[in-house]
């Protein structure tokens, strides 16, 4: 009996240590912005709004968050639309060599937005006059994310029974009507997943915008974060912590919203 209790206690202590390991940085992020002179320690905040005022005084901070939203939303929309259409076609039409094509795309995509392709991408952007353009960045990020998105989306499409579509077809629905009325609602959780994944990817990407956008007014938060220094050239903990909090809130909100709205529900209707 005592052995069992000791076992339990040991188990919970272990879990507590592990949890602390992950929660401390989060606690720091939650408390530091409200502390007058934050250090790397987690302390009870004195609830000052000083740091937020300082961030608002930074001419680029808010604008960069808006830029992040634009870039992430633009990329997510393109990725979702293209991935859905491509995955639907690939799932329903049997092309010879289809799977090979998908795997090759997937492999190549890790190169496109990876370090190896930086120089050629930069040159390509210059040639196409897409350098220093948010649209250009969106297109390139879309290109990088699409193969993986198509791959994931095709899985969702494959798992929706064909008889739904055939049924709509017999009633006279056109292919686009079938996609709009039947396929999209059925794979909605998949679309939401892809959208969240794309947003998170763009939101956290530092390298591509840093490389392709030189105008500070166009740069997203991930890049602006990098510029938050004190006059002495030291990282400014106050601003970094505060900006970090602002930077993470939208993603957390989006995640909560999407999982509440599109959480993985499936209503049945096919009798197995």
């Amino acid at each position: 009996m005592t052995r069992f209790v000791l076992h339990r206690i040991g188990f919970y202590v272990l879990i507590a240590v592990l949890l602390a390991f992950f929660t401390v940085p989060l606690l720091w992020l939650a408390s530091a912005p409200f502390t007058s002179d934050p250090t790397y320690k987690v302390r009870l905040p004195d609830f000052t709004s000083e740091n937020f005022r300082a961030i608002l005084d930074n001419p680029y901070a808010l604008g960069s968050l808006w830029n992040s939203v634009l870039l992430a939303a633009g990329t997510a929309v393109l990725v979702v639309v293209f991935a859905a259409l491509a995955a639907y076609a690939l799932s329903r039409v049997h092309l010879p060599g289809r799977d090979a094509l998908l795997y090759t795309l997937l492999l190549l995509s890790s190169i496109i937005t990876g370090t190896a392709a930086m120089v050629p991408l930069f040159q390509l952007a210059v040639e196409l006059h897409l350098i220093d353009s948010q649209l250009g960045l969106i297109l390139i990020m879309t290109g990088g994310l699409l193969p993986a998105a198509i791959f994931m989306m095709k899985d969702f499409m494959d798992s929706t029974p064909k008889s739904y579509e055939e049924s709509a077809r017999v009633f006279g629905a056109s292919p686009l009507q079938i996609v709009r009325h039947v396929v999209v609602p059925l794979v909605r959780p998949g679309l939401a997943t892809i959208a969240v994944w794309a947003v998170a990817n763009v939101w956290g990407n530092f390298l591509m915008p840093y490389l392709l956008l030189s105008d500070v007014d166009k740069q997203p938060a991930a890049v602006i974060m990098y510029t938050l220094y004190t006059e002495g050239g030291q990282a400014n903990i106050k601003l970094l912590a505060t900006f970090g909090l602002l930077y993470s809130v939208p993603v957390v909100l989006m995640y909560l919203f999407v999982s509440k709205k599109y959480g993985f529900r499936f209503h049945g209707g096919i009798k197995r």
């Binding site: 029974p161 055939e166 049924s167 009633f171 039947v182 609602p185 059925l186 209503h267 209707g269 096919i270």
Partner: peptide, 18 residues
Amino acid sequence: PGARDIAMVFQDYALFPH
């Protein structure tokens, strides 16, 4: 199929779940 003016009940009924 849509131009044939027929209607079909599938074995799994294929009612739209949404």
